[in-house]
Write a protein that binds this DNA or RNA. Structure first.
Length: 149
DNA sequence: AACGTACACTTAT
DNA sequence: ATAAGTGTACGTT
């Protein structure tokens, strides 16, 4: 498969995106830039100009993926809202810890908005840094009224 | 603080 | 191939 990769800024971080057309293969956060283009929809999302990434296809939700059930539920969480590991677990009939594991292994953050899954006790985890999760949630909170999908 | 949970992964049989 | 040991971006008591 012939995909292109590139990065754009989000705060102090670079967001690496590997994609082709409207299919996204990998998204990850890095302190280092990667030369190349990012899907314009993701650029707009990170700039707070849209909350709608529903037209993007992620490899994470393909039926053969180990956690596709979990990732599909997570995609249903609306912009500016959050759910918990336990709520997602109840929807698919598994344990909160497995949901946490699936989030850690999410190949396409943003497209599968794992940042909207928090713990009952606090914000939960995010790699490589929970700062990114906090920033994404703050951005969505700020923009949600303006960006009603 | 300890335990329960539902796995996944590694290492040892 | 199977089993045991260890680890998880959690939740409940």
């Amino acid at each position: 498969m012939e995909m292109t990769g590139g990065s754009c800024r989000f705060g102090l971080w670079y967001v690496h995106v590997w994609w082709k057309d409207d299919t996204v293969y990998q998204v990850r956060f890095s302190p280092e830039p990667l030369d190349g283009p990012v899907h314009p929809g993701i650029v707009r999302f990170l700039a707070g100009k849209t909350g709608d990434l529903s037209y993007l296809h992620s490899v994470a939700t393909e039926p053969d993926h180990q956690y596709s059930d979990i990732y599909r539920r997570v995609r249903d969480i609306p912009y500016g809202k959050t759910s918990t590991y336990g709520e997602i677990a109840a929807l698919v009939g598994t344990s909160p810890r497995l949901v946490g594991l699936a989030m850690k292994r999410n190949p396409t953050p943003l497209v599968v908005p794992c940042h909207r899954v928090v713990s009952v006790a606090g914000i939960g985890g995010f790699s490589p840094s929970v700062d990114i999760k906090e920033a994404l949630l703050a951005m969505e909170k700020k923009n949600k009224l303006r960006l009603i999908q």
